[in-house]
Design a protein around this nucleic acid. Structure first.
Length: 100
DNA sequence: CGGCTGGCGTCGT
DNA sequence: TACGACGCCAGCC
C-alpha cells in the first residue's frame, strides 16, 4: 500500500459515525487539491472494507456516489448510522458533512 | 515516457 | 434537474 493510500485511510478513519466527507475534501486532506478521482480509485481498491468506512465518502453535491458493493448497500449503511438519504441524496447535507 | 481509466468536480447548456 | 464536455491525477499497462 502506498503512502498516499495510507494517508487517505487514516483521514477517513477520523470521520465519526453519523457523519460523512466528500471525495474532494478527502483529497485536499491528503494534499491533493484536485485529486478527487484518485480517492475513488483508492476506495475501490480498499483492501480493508471492514475497518475502512468508505461508505462515508460521498460526492460534493450531496449525492451518494458509487460504492464497491453497490449504492443500495452504501445507502443502507449510511441510514443505519443515522444519516437520512433520499433519492440517492443526503438530506441535511450541510449538517451531515464532516470537515477535517 | 505516453496513453488510458476511473466510486469525482465544475461549468455550460 | 439532467446531461455532456473538460479538467484532474495516481496507477496500470
Amino acid at each position: 500500500m502506498s503512502k498516499l493510500e495510507h494517508r487517505v485511510y487514516q483521514k477517513l478513519l477520523k470521520v465519526p459515525k453519523g457523519k460523512v466527507t466528500t471525495y474532494g475534501e478527502l483529497a485536499k486532506a491528503v494534499g491533493l487539491e484536485n485529486g478527487q478521482r484518485v480517492i475513488g480509485q483508492i476506495m475501490n481498491k480498499n483492501p480493508f472494507p471492514v475497518i475502512i468506512p468508505c461508505h462515508r465518502v460521498v460526492k460534493s453535491d450531496g449525492k451518494i456516489g458509487g460504492y464497491y458493493y453497490g449504492e443500495k448497500v452504501k445507502t443502507k449503511m449510511l441510514s443505519d448510522e443515522g444519516i437520512s438519504v433520499k433519492n440517492g441524496k443526503i438530506q441535511d447535507w450541510k449538517e451531515t458533512i464532516f470537515r477535517f
